[in-house]
Design a protein around this nucleic acid. Sequence first.
DNA 1: AGAATATATGTAGAGTTGTTCAGACGTTAA
DNA 2: TTAACGTCTGAACAACTCTACATATATTCT
Lengths: 141, 141
Amino acid sequence: MTGTVQGMPTAPTRPGSECATRLVDAEKVQAVRSRMPAEADVAELAVIFGLLSDPGRVRILIALLEGEMCVCDLAATTGLSESGVSHALRLLRGPRVVQVRRAGRRAYYSLADSHVRMLLDLGLTHVGHAGQDRLKMVTNS
Amino acid sequence: MTGTVQGMPTAPTRPGSECATRLVDAEKVQAVRSRMPAEADVAELAVIFGLLSDPGRVRILIALLEGEMCVCDLAATTGLSESGVSHALRLLRGPRVVQVRRAGRRAYYSLADSHVRMLLDLGLTHVGHAGQDRLKMVTNS
DNA sequence: AGAATATATGTAGAGTTGTTCAGACGTTAA
DNA sequence: TTAACGTCTGAACAACTCTACATATATTCT
């Protein structure tokens, strides 16, 4: 949490945190700063990534890639406690990464955000996991 | 850190954390567990996302999307202290998200991982930031 | 050589996060 | 109604993370 207020550049970022020495490539700094997304967008982005930064939550979300599941089954699938799953899902519910459907005493969760789905897929291929049938191979015909 | 050892399913995840009640859709649990990436892959994935979960680091990486920059300019661009940038870059250097080129007393950093670049782009579009000229619009012809 | 510069590192303290346990709540079955 | 169930929540605690400050290292300049 740096709290940089960044409107139009030209003025130093904020007192006390500007570069103590001169810039090496002032033009580029200027250009990049003008393209930098707003504070709030960067923060939101960081929050989303933060939700994906825990192995337990990642396992939950990977499970949900295959379709909706109830808390109990998610616990069995991921190895987390049911309480742990519930806590995790609460965090994911806030920014609408997952959504609930309630049926009797059960709660069925599913992915609510296609971007997160893409982030996960991308991440999985990055990590060398071939993504099984999630990643369709581009075959010759 | 749940530490689930997950080889072939059928056996409960580990003593004490299996579902206290019976499963609702045992077949699906089974299927999803068999597709779940290995512990190490999930952990690595979480680490990568974790690196993207801090606004300061996100700003650094967004800056680096435009090409290499030295620490001093990164500090000016992101509003972080130079020490802060240095610490952040160290974290990013570990998993080879960024790479250094040294020239005299300067250190020029650049993105070393195209997947991270994609994650950032994807995240930026998610967040509503049109990605300026990073995101090429698919026009009619 | 010494001074100034650019970056890197160590460390300590505040703050945050994940996990566990206990218990609450609403729902269904007996 | 009472009991069992599935899920949710709150509190407590350890583990971790971020930031800031001080200092270290390496390079260039005079």
